[in-house]
Structures are given as structure tokens and as C-alpha cells.
Amino acid sequence: MSRFDGPDAPYWEALEDGRLMLPRCSACQTWIWPAAHRCGACHADDVQWVEMPLEATVFTWTRTWHRFGLTEDFELPFTTVLAEIAHCGIRLLGNLEDPDRVDPEIGQRLTGTIGSTRTPDGELPVINWSRV
């Protein structure tokens, strides 16, 4: 299954287009992530995709030093954040620009741009975060 076949296909399509879009229930306004075709909170099936600014805070992070399989496009070490997107609370994994290896702090504000990661199956869009 490709990423364009799942419920989060609009996320990937938008990200490739340079925008962050996230899903919300039109009926009860609950943000839905992982993406789904219906709302587990109110059972409505009217999911609306909303463009969000690339603003977030650090929920948690790790810095990878070991060459795991399928990380060949990353220069070691690389720092990953779980970023809590502003205004919606959805958490997304992203790359953190960390040239000086300064440990992130939980709650620290982030601003993002969209880049891409080369994988054996082609390019994948990804959010690159930097500290505000």
C-alpha cells in the first residue's frame, strides 16, 4: 500500500505540495490523528482537512547515533523531535536542525519548513524543525 492509499493520503499530498494539512471532525471539531475516515469521539464521518502553520513545541526527542537500516540518507548523529503542532495538539515526528548538538527542551517552540528524505522507494516529504 502506498501512502496515497491510506486515510492520511491528503496529509502526504499536501506535504508534497509544501503545506501541512491535518484532519478534524466537522461535527465536533475533534482533531483526528492517526487520520481516519470517521470520528471516534462523535461517530460523524465528515472529516475536514485544515491547513496548519508549521509551528509546534517539543513533546519529546531523541538523537540517533547508530546506523539503523533505512537511515542511510541521514548524517549521524541526527536529532528527531516529536513535535506537538500548535493549535491542534496532534504530534508529528520530524527532523530537528541540531548542528551544535544542543539537547532540546520539552516545551521548546519550533518553526518548520518542508524538506525531503531519500528512501529506497523514492523521496518522502518531511518537516524540518528549528528552534525559535
Binding site: W61, T62, F68, G69, T80, G94, L124
Partner: peptide
């Protein structure tokens, strides 16, 4: 693809978070 795009390809990294 969320994991692949961020190089989070091992249980160790996810548990590290």
C-alpha cells in the same frame, strides 16, 4: 512512511522518545 521519512526505523529510537 512517517517513520521512514524521519529515520525512526528501530524500536530503540521509538522507545527512546
Amino acid at each position: 512512511d512517517h517513520l521512514l521519512a524521519t529515520g525512526m526505523t528501530s524500536p530503540a529510537q521509538l522507545c527512546a522518545l
